[in-house]
């Protein structure tokens, strides 16, 4: 078993480096998600306001981030914008920014959808007891929207985490990029190393994403039970 491929993981600092890459991945995803979800909630609420110009602008924002592939967005922000605008940001920050803006766009649509599906009568009975617009959102609409939108939000979170695998394209040292380097450096000694390296990356993503996806499914089921019961 001297040349068994699994040993590629224990060669030198390979495993530590892989976990380091995973740390970068998680850090970018986590910061982008926190910023993106908060911004997305605000934008989603604004998208239910009657002001048409505001709604149009936010709609364009959403469509831009939804239609343009994430890879293109990353390249756009990493290569093109600095040249045109003269802003120079490290790759990790560009990645965080792109993911935060993308999350915000998707989240705004989830929040808007949940808010407008709260029955009209709820809004009216809120108004009938004298609530102003802010209070109506704060005490009546948003709490009801949250339980409607939570499963979709968790799905968005898992999608964002998965999509971080594109970060190597703008040379962020994320877990995929580190994995690639490990594979290339050890190719001679461990020809089957690629299988083990990507195998462990698979397990890492799975361990992070699967519980989230399970949680979303369970919550959706519970919500349906409540709605029908």
């Amino acid at each position: 078993m001297a040349h068994s491929g699994i040993n590629v993981l224990f060669e030198g600092r390979n495993l530590v480096r892989l976990f380091g890459g995973l740390g970068t991945t998680i850090e970018i995803a986590a910061v982008a998600l926190v910023l993106g979800l908060i911004l997305g909630i605000v934008l989603g609420v604004l998208r239910t306001f009657p002001n048409r110009l505001l709604r149009l602008l936010l709609r364009l924002y959403l469509e831009f981030f939804r239609i343009v592939p994430t890879v293109v967005l990353l390249f756009l922000f990493y290569y093109i914008l600095p040249r045109q605008l003269g802003v120079n940001m490290p790759a990790n920050e560009v990645a965080t920014l792109v993911f935060a803006l993308w999350t915000a766009a998707e989240m705004s649509d989830i929040v808007r959808g949940a808010l407008i599906s709260v029955p009209k009568h709820q809004r009216e009975s809120g108004l009938a007891i004298g609530l102003n617009r802010w209070q109506l959102y704060r005490y009546v609409l948003i709490p009801q929207a949250v339980s409607l939108e939570l499963p979709a939000t968790i799905n968005l979170v898992t999608r964002v985490i998965k999509t971080t695998s594109l970060l190597m394209l703008i040379s962020v040292m994320d877990v995929i990029n580190v994995g690639q380097q490990v594979v290339e450096a050890n190719n001679q000694k461990y020809p089957t190393g690629v299988f083990w390296v990507y195998g462990i990356i698979f397990i890492m993503y799975f361990v992070i994403d699967y519980p989230l996806s399970w949680w979303a499914k369970r919550m959706d089921k519970k919500r349906l039970e409540r709605a029908n019961g």
Binding site: P119, H121, Q122, E124, S125, G126, L127, A128, I129, G130, L131, N132, Q135, Y139, V140, P143, Q144, S147
Partner: peptide, 30 residues
């Protein structure tokens, strides 16, 4: 609307609040 109360056909209590909190929302927040 604080002086003109209204009750609707479909009652529309707020499902996210208890009975007491439904009642207190107006007096306390408004």
């Amino acid at each position: 609307r604080q002086q003109i109360g209204m009750v609707f056909q479909s009652y529309d209590l707020f499902p996210n609040l208890t009975v007491l909190d439904n009642i207190l929302l107006g007096p306390v927040k408004v």
